[in-house]
Amino acid sequence: MIKIRVNGKPVAIHDEDKTLLDVIKEIGINIPALCYHPGLPARGSCRLCVVEITKPSWNGRSKIVTSCLYPCEDGLEVLTHSPKVIKLRKVIIKLLLARCSDSKELQELALQYNADVSRFGTKENEKCILCGLCTRACEEMGIEAISMVNRGWKKEVAPPYYEPPENCIGCGACAEVCPVGAIELTETNGIRRIWNREFEIQKCVECGKYFATVAQLEHLHNKYGIPLKDLKTCPECSKKRVGTVLKKTFFD
């Protein structure tokens, strides 16, 4: 068992794989963490979850770490809202807001941390904060249709060669996990558009409802061997099919 103190309060941790952020969230302390998702590996790219840590043996020295990546060590003293942390977090919010001035999520954070944008020039029409949640989600899905491209101020998320990604299945997980709603996904008349590619949405063969992209179903077929014909009914009609068989089982 690991014992640490968070803002002076002692906390006992049984699971040694937990990060500081996991513990901080568990005990109900709210710190911003835009690039964090419980289902995806942490990457520490938004830097908002910074905390100040120290140990009695460090002779009064402390350091700033991203809590989403830092493991729980016995005897750590963690400060989530020390003046140093607040100051740093404020600068990070200002920088992010300068990049994406229209983001509601960032504007709310700025209000909370009293961070105005006057120091930095703003970028036009930018929504992405480069946190990499979308690329991690796509990686975990085993698809890898998008990735970070270029460096420095040219860095961005894009499919290979900026072309409509061939291996994308249009599942929309990237858009779902994006903390600032920067990824556009639209659906009209049975066509889903994302990453500049159009995906045909499967019409349920029973009721005609659109329910998943054809590419998603093909992915399920190719990866798990589920027969394609079994995938062409929407959940409701699959249920009805089972119901019909059960009806025959019981009543015929």
Partner: peptide
């Protein structure tokens, strides 16, 4: 992460 593969 909302890929919805489970529903299909």
């Amino acid at each position: 992460i909302g890929c919805r593969l489970c529903t299909a």
